[in-house]
Write a protein that binds this DNA or RNA. Structure first.
Length: 494
RNA sequence: GGCGGCAUAGCCAAGUGGCAAGGCAGCGGUCUGCAAAACCGUUAUUCACCGGUUCGAAUCCGGUUGCCGCCUCCA
């Protein structure tokens, strides 16, 4: 079935047709590495992680490029984010970049986000950015000021605003900046001159300076994906001005379309409010996963959950929709996720002692039907909420089968496991690869718990329920939950 | 003020013309020594509000209200 995607550029749902048959080239705006990543980053990058995973599942050869911004991204005070942080910590700017780039990848790894194929850094592509800027000046799309700044001339590009729906008249009616060397308020910097004390600067035809924020994406996307590529992704809050500027400068430079499909993720809010440090409702990924402690004043904001549960919460909403983070909503998603892994784990448990053969072969119909529904959902603009509901429907069927008296052969049990493995783990990334080691239970712990389970079984056989319950209750207190099944007792780590 | 988007049960959420998916919470039941888990049943005559188009609208059109994002840095 054909994949449909909602293209923000055309504002329509379209059939996805890559430039080169069988290949997908995708660029996603990455983080500026001046602080730990937060759960808004998690929403964006988990969304594109699933998109990349699904494209590969469909058989496409995907090249996924996601940049690291480490220079030129200024605060509204005009300070460079990286330099400001370096000054505060009294370290080299590149130490800040290195520390937070590592932190970012740690977080993405913890969330099960597969690494992009290329993670280029802006500071490593300054010559490319200078070259593009020169061509834009030569083509009459940019101009240098006496100070050594270079601005893109939006008046030279009538299509400026086509992604975000802004019109030039609206932009020009905005306030004027006193003393600005820009010809037009909407003009944006391609290059900025640096004062001698500025720590990150490079030689250029316009003197010492550093690249503007937007031009890096043009340089790195086209370098690794070509002048025109398939998918450009990012967060909706960067649609204007960042994405708009990217399109203008890229297309003015090459004379060709930049990206064919624009996929933008909806923003994340917390309890209905924008997440920001000033509001005190900022949650980093490390805090959400319990890797770093949450300060007292934000402790009632968040419940620490497993990464797969956080992914489930994010994927229970469509990538393009806004998502409001609340404890209640997160807990609801986490509970639903537990149901899924309960069934997936039970299937693996049963497979260990299943009779050979194809008993219960009739279940093949369910496997086929639910996989088709899952794929149909994902083909429809990566509709993960529906894909998740398919997993739930499938899980009801699985639970009914596994809890029935019916003989189930190893073939069907392995197919059930493969279903969870390919769709739940491989595409959505919410089913852990080794359920018996959920929460990191090492083999010795496994042995100890099994010993206690045996002792409890003996107590139960002697109708010594007081002792049996004591074993179960005290294990529950330390987070080990026992469940009695007709075919034996299993345990889960809470 | 301008641009973009959203409004579906207690909570989350899918659904763009033909009787309102799924999850969480709740309630009733089955199973269990008791639990837990699981399964079965149940929970929106109704989709912010008011008009219109249509045999038929949550879905299309017009208007109203509320909320969010962006317009200045943010994924």
């Amino acid at each position: 079935m054909a994949l449909q995607v909602t293209n923000r550029l055309t504002r329509q749902k379209e059939e996805f047709v890559p430039l080169v048959d069988g290949q997908v080239r995708m660029y996603v705006c990455g983080p500026t590495v001046y602080d730990h990543a937060h759960i808004g980053h998690a929403k964006t990058y988990i969304s594109f992680d699933v998109i990349a995973r699904y494209l590969r599942y469909k058989g496409y050869q995907v090249r996924y490029v996601q940049n690291i911004t480490d220079v030129g991204h200024l605060l509204d005070t005009g300070e460079d984010r990286i330099l400001k942080k370096a000054g505060a910590l009294s370290v080299e700017p590149m130490e800040v970049v290195e520390a937070y780039a590592r932190s970012y990848f740690e977080d993405m790894d913890a969330l099960g986000v597969q690494r992009p194929d290329i993670s280029p850094r802006a500071s490593g592509h300054v010559p490319e950015q200078i070259e593009i800027t020169q061509v834009l000046i030569a083509g009459g799309h940019a101009y240098a000021t006496p100070d050594g700044d270079v601005y893109f001339d939006v008046n030279s590009w009538p299509e400026y605003g086509k992604l975000s729906g802004r019109r030039m008249e609206d932009l020009q009616s905005e306030r004027e900046i006193a003393g600005s060397e820009k010809r037009n308020q909407a003009d944006f910097a391609l290059w900025r001159h640096a004062e001698p004390e500025h720590l990150m600067q490079w030689n250029s035809p316009w003197g010492k300076g550093f690249p503007g924020w937007h031009i890096e994406c043009t340089a790195m996307a086209t370098k690794y994906l070509g002048e025109t590529f398939d998918i450009h992704g990012g967060g909706l809050e960067n649609q204007f001005p960042h994405n708009e500027c990217e399109i203008a400068q890229s297309e003015a430079w090459t004379g060709k379309p930049f990206a064919n499909y624009w996929l933008l993720t909806g923003s994340l809010t917390i309890n209905g409010e924008k997440m920001s440090k000033s509001l005190g409702n900022f949650i980093t990924i490390k805090e959400a996963l319990g890797i770093l402690p949450l300060p007292e004043e934000r402790r009632d904001l968040v419940d620490v959950v497993r990464p797969e549960a956080l992914r489930t919460f994010i994927l229970a909403n469509h990538y393009s929709s806004p998502l409001d983070y609340s404890r209640e909503a997160l807990q609801g998603a986490a509970r639903g996720w537990e149901r899924l892994i309960g069934a997936a784990g039970l299937a693996r448990f049963k497979a260990q002692s299943a009779p050979q053969g194809d008993a219960a072969a009739g279940f093949q119909t369910v496997l086929d039907e639910q996989r088709a529904r899952f794929e149909a959902a994902m083909d429809d603009d990566f509709n993960t909420p529906v894909a998740l509901s398919v997993l739930h429907d499938f899980t009801r069927e699985v639970n009914s089968l596994l809890n029935s008296d019916e003989q189930i052969g190893s073939i069907i049990l392995e197919k059930i496991s493969a279903f969870y493995d390919e769709l739940g783990r491989g595409i959505l990334g919410i089913i852990p690869s080794d359920l018996t080691e959920m929460g990191g239970a090492p083999e010795r712990l496994d042995g100890v718990v099994n010993l206690l389970i045996t002792m409890r079984a003996e107590a139960r056989a002697e109708k010594n329920f007081a002792q049996a319950d004591q074993i179960r209750d005290r294990l529950a207190e330390i987070g080990i939950v026992l469940e009695d099944r007709p075919d034996g007792t299993v345990y889960k780590l809470a």
